[in-house]
Design a protein around this nucleic acid. Structure first.
Length: 334
DNA sequence: TAATTATGACGAC
DNA sequence: TCGTCCTAATTAC
Protein backbone atom coordinates (compact mmCIF):
# COMPACT_ATOMS: atom_id res chain seq x y z
CA UNK A 1 0.00 0.00 0.00
CA UNK A 2 2.20 2.67 -1.20
CA UNK A 3 1.57 6.31 -0.58
CA UNK A 4 3.03 9.01 -2.75
CA UNK A 5 6.64 8.58 -1.69
CA UNK A 6 6.81 5.01 -3.03
CA UNK A 7 5.49 5.99 -6.42
CA UNK A 8 8.10 8.73 -6.79
CA UNK A 9 10.81 6.25 -5.82
CA UNK A 10 9.58 3.73 -8.35
CA UNK A 11 9.41 6.38 -11.05
CA UNK A 12 13.04 7.30 -10.37
CA UNK A 13 14.03 3.66 -10.76
CA UNK A 14 12.29 3.54 -14.12
CA UNK A 15 13.91 6.79 -15.12
CA UNK A 16 17.31 5.41 -14.28
CA UNK A 17 16.93 1.92 -15.68
CA UNK A 18 14.34 2.07 -18.45
CA UNK A 19 14.09 5.49 -20.05
CA UNK A 20 16.13 5.51 -23.24
CA UNK A 21 16.03 1.74 -23.62
CA UNK A 22 14.03 -0.68 -25.67
CA UNK A 23 11.65 -2.63 -23.48
CA UNK A 24 10.19 -6.05 -23.91
CA UNK A 25 6.82 -6.49 -22.25
CA UNK A 26 4.75 -9.48 -21.33
CA UNK A 27 1.88 -10.39 -19.06
CA UNK A 28 2.75 -13.72 -17.45
CA UNK A 29 -0.63 -13.71 -15.73
CA UNK A 30 -2.37 -12.94 -18.99
CA UNK A 31 -4.61 -10.16 -17.75
CA UNK A 32 -2.67 -7.45 -19.53
CA UNK A 33 -1.62 -9.48 -22.54
CA UNK A 34 -2.99 -7.08 -25.12
CA UNK A 35 -1.42 -4.03 -23.54
CA UNK A 36 1.90 -5.76 -23.10
CA UNK A 37 1.90 -6.71 -26.76
CA UNK A 38 1.46 -3.06 -27.72
CA UNK A 39 4.34 -1.98 -25.48
CA UNK A 40 6.65 -4.78 -26.51
CA UNK A 41 9.64 -3.61 -28.49
CA UNK A 42 9.15 0.09 -27.90
CA UNK A 43 11.61 2.46 -26.30
CA UNK A 44 10.69 4.00 -22.96
CA UNK A 45 11.02 7.74 -23.35
CA UNK A 46 9.73 9.39 -20.16
CA UNK A 47 8.33 8.65 -16.75
CA UNK A 48 6.19 10.79 -14.50
CA UNK A 49 4.83 10.28 -11.01
CA UNK A 50 1.85 12.25 -9.78
CA UNK A 51 0.44 11.39 -6.41
CA UNK A 52 -0.10 7.66 -6.29
CA UNK A 53 0.04 7.14 -10.02
CA UNK A 54 2.91 6.52 -12.38
CA UNK A 55 2.92 7.26 -16.09
CA UNK A 56 5.53 5.62 -18.29
CA UNK A 57 5.77 6.83 -21.85
CA UNK A 58 6.91 4.79 -24.84
CA UNK A 59 7.69 5.98 -28.32
CA UNK A 60 4.65 6.52 -30.46
CA UNK A 61 2.74 8.58 -27.87
CA UNK A 62 1.89 5.50 -25.87
CA UNK A 63 1.54 5.86 -22.12
CA UNK A 64 1.25 3.20 -19.45
CA UNK A 65 -0.70 4.29 -16.39
CA UNK A 66 -0.17 2.29 -13.19
CA UNK A 67 -1.91 2.75 -9.87
CA UNK A 68 -0.77 0.27 -7.25
CA UNK A 69 -3.87 0.53 -5.08
CA UNK A 70 -3.91 -1.45 -1.88
CA UNK A 71 -1.68 -4.34 -2.80
CA UNK A 72 0.31 -3.36 -5.81
CA UNK A 73 4.07 -3.66 -5.98
CA UNK A 74 6.96 -3.65 -8.40
CA UNK A 75 9.76 -6.16 -8.06
CA UNK A 76 13.00 -5.16 -9.72
CA UNK A 77 15.66 -7.70 -10.54
CA UNK A 78 18.81 -8.01 -12.55
CA UNK A 79 21.24 -5.16 -12.92
CA UNK A 80 19.80 -2.10 -11.28
CA UNK A 81 21.30 1.33 -11.60
CA UNK A 82 20.51 3.00 -8.33
CA UNK A 83 19.01 6.42 -8.57
CA UNK A 84 21.29 8.71 -6.56
CA UNK A 85 18.35 10.61 -5.12
CA UNK A 86 17.02 7.65 -3.19
CA UNK A 87 18.91 6.19 -0.32
CA UNK A 88 18.27 2.49 -0.52
CA UNK A 89 18.32 0.27 -3.52
CA UNK A 90 15.42 -2.06 -3.81
CA UNK A 91 14.22 -5.21 -5.14
CA UNK A 92 10.57 -4.77 -4.38
CA UNK A 93 9.03 -1.34 -4.14
CA UNK A 94 5.65 -0.30 -2.95
CA UNK A 95 4.60 -3.10 -0.71
CA UNK A 96 5.19 -3.79 2.95
CA UNK A 97 5.12 -7.04 4.82
CA UNK A 98 2.82 -7.81 7.69
CA UNK A 99 5.31 -6.99 10.36
CA UNK A 100 5.27 -3.50 9.07
CA UNK A 101 8.75 -3.49 7.67
CA UNK A 102 8.87 -1.56 4.48
CA UNK A 103 9.95 -4.08 1.91
CA UNK A 104 11.62 -1.12 0.30
CA UNK A 105 14.28 -1.65 2.89
CA UNK A 106 13.99 -5.33 3.63
CA UNK A 107 14.02 -7.18 0.42
CA UNK A 108 16.95 -6.32 -1.71
CA UNK A 109 20.09 -8.36 -1.73
CA UNK A 110 23.13 -7.49 -3.71
CA UNK A 111 26.04 -9.71 -4.39
CA UNK A 112 28.39 -6.90 -3.62
CA UNK A 113 28.34 -6.70 0.17
CA UNK A 114 27.42 -3.31 1.48
CA UNK A 115 25.81 -2.26 -1.72
CA UNK A 116 22.35 -2.62 -0.30
CA UNK A 117 22.76 -0.21 2.55
CA UNK A 118 23.63 2.73 0.36
CA UNK A 119 24.51 4.83 3.33
CA UNK A 120 26.08 7.33 1.05
CA UNK A 121 24.25 8.99 -1.73
CA UNK A 122 26.45 9.53 -4.65
CA UNK A 123 26.99 8.60 -8.22
CA UNK A 124 24.77 5.93 -9.62
CA UNK A 125 26.10 2.48 -9.11
CA UNK A 126 25.41 -0.76 -10.72
CA UNK A 127 24.37 -3.71 -8.63
CA UNK A 128 23.33 -7.20 -9.35
CA UNK A 129 20.00 -7.30 -7.56
CA UNK A 130 17.56 -9.95 -6.61
CA UNK A 131 14.54 -10.13 -4.42
CA UNK A 132 14.56 -11.77 -1.07
CA UNK A 133 11.38 -12.33 0.86
CA UNK A 134 11.53 -12.22 4.63
CA UNK A 135 13.55 -14.99 6.20
CA UNK A 136 10.67 -17.33 7.01
CA UNK A 137 9.36 -17.17 3.53
CA UNK A 138 10.31 -19.09 0.50
CA UNK A 139 12.72 -16.77 -1.19
CA UNK A 140 14.73 -16.54 -4.31
CA UNK A 141 18.03 -17.06 -2.61
CA UNK A 142 18.75 -20.24 -4.51
CA UNK A 143 17.95 -18.99 -7.92
CA UNK A 144 18.23 -15.26 -7.57
CA UNK A 145 20.72 -15.08 -10.39
CA UNK A 146 18.54 -16.73 -12.98
CA UNK A 147 17.92 -14.69 -16.07
CA UNK A 148 15.25 -13.95 -16.84
CA UNK A 149 14.02 -14.26 -13.27
CA UNK A 150 11.45 -16.99 -12.72
CA UNK A 151 7.90 -15.71 -12.56
CA UNK A 152 6.52 -16.00 -9.04
CA UNK A 153 2.84 -15.44 -8.33
CA UNK A 154 0.46 -13.22 -10.22
CA UNK A 155 2.56 -10.99 -12.43
CA UNK A 156 0.31 -8.64 -14.38
CA UNK A 157 3.11 -7.05 -16.33
CA UNK A 158 6.80 -7.75 -16.79
CA UNK A 159 8.96 -5.05 -18.33
CA UNK A 160 12.47 -6.02 -19.30
CA UNK A 161 15.49 -4.35 -20.77
CA UNK A 162 18.54 -6.38 -21.68
CA UNK A 163 19.70 -6.31 -18.07
CA UNK A 164 16.82 -5.32 -15.80
CA UNK A 165 13.38 -6.72 -15.15
CA UNK A 166 10.44 -5.22 -13.31
CA UNK A 167 7.40 -7.26 -12.32
CA UNK A 168 4.13 -5.58 -11.54
CA UNK A 169 1.61 -7.42 -9.40
CA UNK A 170 -1.65 -6.49 -7.77
CA UNK A 171 -2.21 -3.06 -9.29
CA UNK A 172 -5.61 -1.49 -9.07
CA UNK A 173 -4.98 0.12 -12.44
CA UNK A 174 -2.70 -0.86 -15.30
CA UNK A 175 -3.75 0.50 -18.65
CA UNK A 176 -2.58 2.22 -21.80
CA UNK A 177 -3.46 5.83 -22.36
CA UNK A 178 -3.14 8.45 -25.06
CA UNK A 179 -1.41 11.72 -24.19
CA UNK A 180 -4.81 13.37 -23.90
CA UNK A 181 -6.00 10.72 -21.49
CA UNK A 182 -2.89 11.17 -19.37
CA UNK A 183 -3.51 14.89 -19.26
CA UNK A 184 -7.12 14.31 -18.25
CA UNK A 185 -6.14 11.90 -15.49
CA UNK A 186 -3.56 14.29 -14.08
CA UNK A 187 -5.95 17.23 -14.35
CA UNK A 188 -8.27 15.53 -11.87
CA UNK A 189 -5.54 15.22 -9.27
CA UNK A 190 -4.78 17.70 -6.55
CA UNK A 191 -1.31 19.21 -6.24
CA UNK A 192 1.75 17.03 -5.64
CA UNK A 193 4.59 18.79 -3.78
CA UNK A 194 7.17 17.11 -6.01
CA UNK A 195 5.42 18.03 -9.24
CA UNK A 196 3.80 21.41 -8.88
CA UNK A 197 5.16 24.87 -8.26
CA UNK A 198 5.41 25.14 -4.45
CA UNK A 199 3.65 28.48 -4.02
CA UNK A 200 0.93 27.75 -6.51
CA UNK A 201 0.31 24.34 -5.01
CA UNK A 202 0.07 25.68 -1.49
CA UNK A 203 -2.44 28.31 -2.63
CA UNK A 204 -4.51 25.75 -4.47
CA UNK A 205 -4.59 23.33 -1.54
CA UNK A 206 -5.37 26.04 0.97
CA UNK A 207 -8.16 27.53 -1.09
CA UNK A 208 -9.89 24.21 -1.60
CA UNK A 209 -9.64 23.08 2.02
CA UNK A 210 -10.85 26.41 3.35
CA UNK A 211 -13.92 26.23 1.17
CA UNK A 212 -15.21 22.81 2.22
CA UNK A 213 -17.38 21.68 5.13
CA UNK A 214 -15.84 18.21 4.85
CA UNK A 215 -13.78 16.99 7.80
CA UNK A 216 -10.08 17.62 7.27
CA UNK A 217 -9.47 13.90 7.88
CA UNK A 218 -11.40 13.15 4.70
CA UNK A 219 -9.99 16.02 2.68
CA UNK A 220 -6.43 14.83 3.19
CA UNK A 221 -7.34 11.46 1.69
CA UNK A 222 -9.15 13.03 -1.27
CA UNK A 223 -6.76 12.76 -4.22
CA UNK A 224 -8.50 15.64 -5.98
CA UNK A 225 -7.63 17.89 -3.04
CA UNK A 226 -4.03 16.81 -2.54
CA UNK A 227 -2.10 14.02 -4.24
CA UNK A 228 -0.23 11.22 -2.60
CA UNK A 229 -1.46 11.24 0.98
CA UNK A 230 -2.72 7.87 2.23
CA UNK A 231 -3.91 6.49 5.52
CA UNK A 232 -0.56 6.60 7.31
CA UNK A 233 0.41 10.11 6.30
CA UNK A 234 -3.13 11.33 7.00
CA UNK A 235 -3.02 10.25 10.62
CA UNK A 236 0.49 11.49 11.13
CA UNK A 237 0.01 14.88 9.47
CA UNK A 238 -3.06 15.56 11.60
CA UNK A 239 -1.20 14.62 14.74
CA UNK A 240 1.75 16.79 13.83
CA UNK A 241 -0.67 19.66 13.27
CA UNK A 242 -2.34 18.88 16.62
CA UNK A 243 -5.61 19.01 14.74
CA UNK A 244 -8.86 17.13 15.39
CA UNK A 245 -9.55 15.06 12.23
CA UNK A 246 -13.24 15.97 12.40
CA UNK A 247 -12.65 19.69 12.00
CA UNK A 248 -14.41 20.94 8.87
CA UNK A 249 -11.93 22.20 6.31
CA UNK A 250 -13.39 25.70 6.33
CA UNK A 251 -12.90 25.94 10.10
CA UNK A 252 -9.22 25.04 10.05
CA UNK A 253 -7.22 28.25 10.50
CA UNK A 254 -5.52 29.28 7.29
CA UNK A 255 -2.07 29.15 8.83
CA UNK A 256 -2.72 25.60 9.99
CA UNK A 257 -3.80 24.55 6.50
CA UNK A 258 -0.64 26.05 5.06
CA UNK A 259 1.44 24.37 7.73
CA UNK A 260 -0.09 21.01 6.84
CA UNK A 261 0.78 21.52 3.19
CA UNK A 262 4.37 22.41 3.96
CA UNK A 263 4.62 19.50 6.38
CA UNK A 264 3.37 17.12 3.69
CA UNK A 265 5.97 18.47 1.29
CA UNK A 266 8.64 17.86 3.92
CA UNK A 267 7.51 14.35 4.82
CA UNK A 268 7.25 13.42 1.17
CA UNK A 269 10.84 14.42 0.52
CA UNK A 270 11.98 12.38 3.52
CA UNK A 271 9.88 9.44 2.35
CA UNK A 272 11.31 9.51 -1.15
CA UNK A 273 14.87 9.73 0.08
CA UNK A 274 14.62 7.05 2.76
CA UNK A 275 11.90 4.78 1.45
CA UNK A 276 10.22 4.91 4.82
CA UNK A 277 7.21 6.79 6.08
CA UNK A 278 9.22 8.44 8.78
CA UNK A 279 7.00 10.97 10.50
CA UNK A 280 8.97 11.53 13.68
CA UNK A 281 11.86 13.32 12.09
CA UNK A 282 12.42 15.82 14.87
CA UNK A 283 14.15 13.37 17.14
CA UNK A 284 17.61 13.15 18.59
CA UNK A 285 19.94 10.90 16.60
CA UNK A 286 19.55 7.85 18.84
CA UNK A 287 15.77 7.98 18.93
CA UNK A 288 15.77 8.59 15.19
CA UNK A 289 17.89 5.52 14.58
CA UNK A 290 15.52 3.46 16.73
CA UNK A 291 12.52 4.84 14.90
CA UNK A 292 14.00 4.00 11.53
CA UNK A 293 14.81 0.49 12.66
CA UNK A 294 11.29 -0.59 13.46
CA UNK A 295 8.00 0.70 12.26
CA UNK A 296 6.57 0.21 15.73
CA UNK A 297 8.60 3.23 16.73
CA UNK A 298 8.20 5.24 13.58
CA UNK A 299 4.85 6.96 14.01
CA UNK A 300 3.08 9.25 16.45
CA UNK A 301 -0.35 7.66 16.21
CA UNK A 302 -0.65 5.37 13.21
CA UNK A 303 -1.29 1.77 14.21
CA UNK A 304 -1.11 2.68 17.88
CA UNK A 305 -4.75 2.18 18.92
CA UNK A 306 -5.04 1.74 22.68
CA UNK A 307 -1.41 2.62 23.30
CA UNK A 308 -0.52 5.74 25.26
CA UNK A 309 0.12 8.89 23.29
CA UNK A 310 3.86 9.46 23.10
CA UNK A 311 3.38 13.01 24.36
CA UNK A 312 0.44 13.07 26.79
CA UNK A 313 -0.18 9.41 27.59
CA UNK A 314 -3.82 9.43 26.53
CA UNK A 315 -4.96 6.28 24.77
CA UNK A 316 -4.79 6.60 21.00
CA UNK A 317 -8.28 6.29 19.54
CA UNK A 318 -9.18 4.13 16.56
CA UNK A 319 -12.21 5.02 14.51
CA UNK A 320 -13.42 4.64 10.97
CA UNK A 321 -13.28 7.65 8.73
CA UNK A 322 -13.75 7.36 5.02
CA UNK A 323 -13.98 3.58 5.36
CA UNK A 324 -10.41 3.56 6.62
CA UNK A 325 -8.90 3.28 10.05
CA UNK A 326 -8.13 6.61 11.60
CA UNK A 327 -5.79 6.86 14.59
CA UNK A 328 -5.61 10.02 16.65
CA UNK A 329 -5.00 11.42 20.09
CA UNK A 330 -8.19 13.03 21.44
CA UNK A 331 -6.16 14.96 23.95
CA UNK A 332 -3.42 16.47 21.78
CA UNK A 333 -5.54 17.00 18.68
CA UNK A 334 -8.12 19.74 19.18
C1' DT B 1 -6.44 -24.73 5.51
C1' DA B 2 -8.95 -20.72 6.48
C1' DA B 3 -9.29 -16.18 8.11
C1' DT B 4 -7.35 -11.79 8.61
C1' DT B 5 -4.97 -7.87 7.29
C1' DA B 6 -3.18 -3.99 4.41
C1' DT B 7 -0.15 2.55 3.06
C1' DG B 8 -6.90 2.55 -2.52
C1' DA B 9 -10.48 3.79 -5.16
C1' DC B 10 -14.69 3.04 -7.72
C1' DG B 11 -19.55 2.33 -8.71
C1' DA B 12 -24.25 1.09 -7.27
C1' DC B 13 -27.94 2.14 -4.12
C1' DT C 1 -22.81 3.19 3.11
C1' DC C 2 -21.94 -0.92 1.03
C1' DG C 3 -19.86 -4.19 -2.15
C1' DT C 4 -16.17 -5.04 -5.21
C1' DC C 5 -11.61 -5.51 -7.25
C1' DC C 6 -6.49 -6.49 -6.96
C1' DT C 7 -2.47 -9.98 -4.08
C1' DA C 8 0.27 -12.26 -0.58
C1' DA C 9 2.07 -12.60 4.13
C1' DT C 10 0.87 -13.81 8.56
C1' DT C 11 -1.98 -15.55 12.12
C1' DA C 12 -5.60 -18.39 13.81
C1' DC C 13 -7.61 -22.79 14.03
Amino acid sequence: MPEGHSVHRIARQFDRNYVGRVVSASSPQGRFAEGAAVIDGREAVEVRAVGKQMFLAFDGDLWLRVHLGMYGAWDFAGEILVDPTIASANGRMGQTNQRGTDLDEASAVFDDAGENSLASIGAPRRARGRVRMSEQTRGLDDDGDEWPPPVVGQVRLRLMTDVTSADLRGPTACELQTPDEVRATIAKLGPDPLVDDPDEAEERFTAVVRRKPTPIGLLLMDQSVVSGIGNVYRAELLYRALLDPHTPGKLVPEEVVRAIWRDWARLLVIGVETGQMMTMDDLDPEAYRRAMASRDDRHWVYHRAGLPCRVCGTEIVLEEMGARKLYWCPSCQK
